[in-house]
């Protein structure tokens, strides 16, 4: 690991000014991706700006039709939160399936979303639930947030403060996990609200994405039978030692059907 300095601010304003003052600053959230990246010398920040002690960056609140989760809230906390479990059980289930218990005790929702790993779980929830990402300078709709592999709409030094999840009528997350890493080979979040259905798929492509054809089919008839094999072409999907693109395409249809079946109840 290359050398770096550490800064431990206790306010968002201080974190921002420290970032601006650093030669090549990097925010540190739960560190479950960043620390392994540093160990492999794939990044060389001059300063790590630790968000652990920043006031007002952790916690969960429910108000009417929205669940709000602050950026530094750990996966364990989301999974165990009674309001999340009651309002969006699929989100609690998703959080409880990230990595393993030890990773969930450290990893944060803000870190996961900012990193936008192609096989991360949270991006599927953010996109399917039509969440809003609140930063220190603006609000970004999920549809505009995930822009590519490990790429987001976040600008240099922009800090996620919280995520607002509208509470859906029904939602379900189904993951076909890599048996070793527990990352999603394919993860599917299906969310239904009023007459709208959103289907977000992670793990299968370079970046989380929605599928318009499946959404249209489910808006016509919210039933597993609406999802046919081959609805998603394999061409642009990931292919690696764990699964071919054709297998991932097949898994998507299977996982969407399972998610819809669970959401219907």
């Amino acid at each position: 690991m290359y050398e770096f300095d550490i800064i431990t601010p206790n306010s968002i304003d201080a974190a921002k000014s420290e970032f601006d003052a650093a030669e090549d600053g990097q925010f540190l959230a739960g560190g479950q991706t960043l620390i392994p990246v540093l160990k492999q010398r794939l990044a060389m920040p001059s300063d790590l700006i630790d968000l652990e002690h920043v006031h007002g960056l952790s916690g969960i609140s429910a108000s009417g039709d929205t669940i709000s989760i602050k950026a530094m809230t750990r996966h364990t906390e989301v999974a165990a939160d009674h309001e999340v479990q009651a309002a969006i059980p699929a989100l609690a289930k998703l959080a409880n399936g990230i990595g393993d218990m030890h990773v969930r005790n450290r990893g944060t929702i803000g870190g996961s979303i900012a990193n936008n790993d192609p096989a991360a779980d949270y991006p599927a929830a953010v996109l399917a639930l039509h969440a809003t990402i609140v930063t220190d300078r603006r609000e970004i709709l999920a549809d505009h947030f995930f822009t590519g592999m490990f790429e987001t709409a976040l600008e240099e030094g922009e800090l996620i403060t919280e995520i607002h999840f509208p509470i859906p009528e029904a939602a379900s997350y189904m993951k076909f996990a890599n048996p070793a890493t527990r990352y999603a080979l394919v993860g599917v979040m299906v969310a239904k609200s009023h007459n709208n259905v959103r289907v977000a798929i992670t793990g299968a492509g370079p970046c989380v994405f929605r599928d318009a054809e499946m959404e249209q089919a489910l808006m016509g008839n919210f039933s597993p039978e609406s999802i046919k094999d081959g609805m998603i072409p394999a061409d642009d999907l990931n292919t690696d030692i764990h699964a071919s693109r054709e297998y991932r395409a097949h898994l998507i249809s299977v996982m969407v059907r399972r998610a819809v079946a669970e959401a219907v109840g």
């Binding site: 550490i6 479950q32 392994p36 030890h102 005790n105």
Partner: peptide, 8 residues
């Protein structure tokens, strides 16, 4: 519990 190799 945490993984001590993934924290400072």
């Amino acid at each position: 519990t945490i993984k001590s190799c993934a924290s400072f």
